[in-house]
Design a protein around this nucleic acid. Structure first.
Ligand code: ZN
Ligand code: ZN
Ligand code: ZN
Ligand code: ZN
Lengths: 129, 129
DNA sequence: GGCAAAATGAAAACGGTTGTCAAAATCGAC
DNA sequence: GTCGATTTTGACAACCGTTTTCATTTTGCC
C-alpha cells in the first residue's frame, strides 16, 4: 500500500528510542528518501491511530513515537539523556489504577504511566567525565 | 509581594479542576482584574517552579495547573468530561517505579502517573440523557 | 521626592502541528 | 494500454499555545 508509511514505520522499528516527527523526517531525508514533512506527520498519526506505534508527549510538548515490540498493554522506562527505552509491565499498577477509579465512582478508567531515569550507560559516561 | 500572582493562585485554589493559563486569564478578566496574559503565564510558571501548584499536559498539548491541597507527592484522578480532580496516593506505585528503574540499571528515577475516567456525576448526566 | 530594580503587558516571534489545495501517483474499468 | 476517478503527496500558509521583546509602570529603599 503506502510505501511512505512503511518507510516511516521502518525508521521507528529500527530505533530503540522514541522519535519525533521532525526527527524521523530528517533521517528519511538524509537516507535519501523523497518524502515531505506533512506526509511523515500523516504516517505517524495513522500508525498511532492503528495502534502500530506508541505515542507520548515530551515535557516540551513534542509528540514522540515508538514501534513497541509488545502488543499488549505496557509502559515505558525512558532514559532522560539518550532516550533509549525499555518496555515494562506493571500488573500491580493496572490494578491500582482501576481500584482508585472505582473507589471514587469513576468509570471508563484509563491511565498514563511513564518512568524516567538515567540509564546505566548514560550514568557511566556522566560520572567518568 | 505580587498581588497578581496571588490573584492567579486564588483562582486555582478556588477550583477543583486543572485550569489552563488562558482559562485563568479569562476568569480574571471577567472578574474585572486588570492583568495581562503574559503575567498570568509568568505567575503560573513561578507557582509551578515553587511547587505551589501541580502541572500536567492535556492530550492536545495545553499545560494545565492546579493548587493541590496535599503537600506530599501524589497523583491525580481526573474526570475527562468536567475536569474535576481527586488527589490520590499510591505507595505501591512509588515502589514499583523505583524497582523497575533499579532493575534496569536506571538512576535518578522519576515517574508520571495520571488516572483518567468519567466521574460519577458525569456518568449520571450522560446516561440519563 | 528621587532613583534603581523588578514587574507588567501589548505586540511580535517561536515551534510543533494541522489545514489547504493543486499536482502527482494509483486504481479501475474499458 | 488509455482515460477518467480516486487517493496520496507535499510546499506553503495558517493555527495556537507559549515565550520573548522591550518600552512603560510600579515597587522598594534611601
Ligand atoms: Zn541513556
Ligand atoms: Zn498500564
Ligand atoms: Zn466529571
Ligand atoms: Zn508517584
Amino acid at each position: 500500500m503506502s510505501s511512505r508509511r512503511d518507510a516511516v514505520h521502518d525508521i521507528l522499528r529500527s530505533s530503540a528510542s522514541f522519535r519525533s516527527a521532525q526527527d524521523v523526517y530528517a533521517q528519511l531525508r538524509s537516507d535519501g528518501a523523497k518524502i515531505g514533512l506533512t506526509t511523515v506527520y500523516r504516517a505517524l498519526q495513522a500508525l498511532a491511530d492503528g495502534g502500530m506505534v506508541d505515542v507520548l508527549r515530551t515535557d516540551d510538548g513534542e509528540s514522540v513515537y515508538r514501534a513497541c515490540t509488545t502488543d499488549s498493554h505496557h509502559h515505558h522506562l525512558v532514559c532522560r539523556q539518550c532516550g533509549s527505552t525499555v518496555e515494562v509491565a506493571g500488573p500491580d499498577v493496572e490494578r491500582w489504577a482501576e481500584a482508585v477509579g472505582a473507589e471514587h465512582g469513576f468509570t471508563e478508567v484509563t491511565h498514563t504511566v511513564e518512568v524516567f531515569g538515567t540509564c546505566a550507560e548514560c550514568s557511566v559516561s556522566r560520572t567518568s567525565r
